[in-house]
Simulated scan of single mutants.
Amino acid sequence: MLIDTHLHLIDQSALHYPWLSGVEALNRDFLYEDYALQARRAGIVQALHMEVDVAPAEIQTEIDYVAGLSKRENSLIAGAIAACRPEDDGFASYLEQQKANSFIKGFRRILHTMPDELSEGALFRENIGRIGGSGLTFDLCVLPRQMDKAIALVDLAPDVTFILDHCGVPDIKGNDFETWHGRITEIAKRSNVIAKISGVVAYADGQWSAATLKPYVHHVIDSFGWDRIVWGSDWPVCTLGGGLATWVAATHALLSGCSESEKTKLFSGNAKRVWKL
């Protein structure tokens, strides 16, 4: 059984997503009902919703929307990773508000599409440090060339558990393995970083196979070890690389030969521990 730590839901009747206008393939609704049907068939038993970079004024609206879905009978949604703006003065009060909400399991601020210097701001770094001791995590979505900035953030907040999204966003299609490889090795030395095995099917070309993904996924597992990895679907972004069932099947193929205890850690055990599910 799998716990999906990276589910996106898109409902344009409820929320506004400014970035979608530039991504035609995803510029439509991807609703809970569609996901749940596919997820149950694939063996997914719980999911954490990952913020979808809604308009800033709608961050709390997104939280409330997803919380409402979680209250449906037999809902798969067990919590949410909320959007945040650590660069803003209001972050401290926002953090206190969310700490009181047991549905919130962590935060993410998109960095891979933002100016590199965003995470270098004094206020940004101070506010990330405030998360320490709260039990809430912070997801890092960065490009390989931004990894040094991610490492600096991690080193400045040793009491915060960071989640490195999408295997560190390797350029699989461009076959730039070496640049990414060394930076994964370096960030994995930080014990407060957990890697998320997710997203990679969207970074390969349309002809990818499990063998294409194997060097990337296995390097992440080898670098972080079985106790510091979790699994995510990245639905619906995974539809750009074949879809949910295809990614689940590829994951099983990539883990062929691994022990049942190792698979259990990646598929569910580590997620249960990290987010107290």
Rank of each mutant, 00 (worst) to 15 (best):
R228M: 06
A78K: 05
L76K: 00
K263V: 03
Q207Y: 14
H112W: 04
K214F: 13
D88V: 09
A249H: 05
H219P: 04
R41Q: 13
R228A: 05
S75P: 01
R183A: 05
D159Y: 07
K272L: 12
K265V: 12
I229Q: 05
F177E: 14
Q12H: 06
H49Y: 11
V248W: 00
L240N: 05
H112K: 06
P170W: 05
D88M: 13
V154Y: 01
A150L: 07
V154W: 03
H8R: 09
L156R: 11
K272P: 00
E87A: 12
S268E: 11
S261T: 15
K276E: 13
G257W: 11
Y32N: 01
E96F: 11
A152W: 08
T239W: 02
G241D: 13
T5V: 08
L69V: 04
Y35F: 15
P56E: 04
G199V: 06
I77R: 01
N175P: 07
A67W: 03
V52F: 02
G199A: 08
E186Q: 14
D148M: 09
Y65Q: 00
T61D: 11
I3T: 02
V220M: 02
H252I: 10
T251M: 15
M1L: 15
K214V: 08
L156F: 09
L255A: 11
I104L: 09
L255K: 06
V23W: 14
A25V: 08
H112N: 10
G199S: 10
K265T: 11
Q38A: 11
K265Q: 15
R85H: 13
A202S: 12
A157H: 03
W180N: 01
W19H: 06
C167K: 03
D165P: 06
R108F: 14
L7I: 13
F91N: 01
A195M: 07
E33A: 15
L69K: 02
E186N: 09
F107S: 03
G106I: 12
S259N: 09
F103Y: 00
L123M: 13
A210F: 00
C167A: 08
W235D: 07
I77G: 02
S102F: 12
L140Q: 03
L26T: 10
I10L: 15
H219R: 14
S13M: 10
L254R: 01
S256K: 12
E178Y: 07
D234I: 05
M50G: 07
Q97Y: 08
H8T: 12
F224N: 09
I151V: 09
S75I: 03
I81R: 01
S119D: 09
E126V: 02
K105A: 11
G68Y: 13
F267I: 05
H181I: 03
V217C: 13
D171K: 04
S259L: 12
A204F: 12
E96L: 15
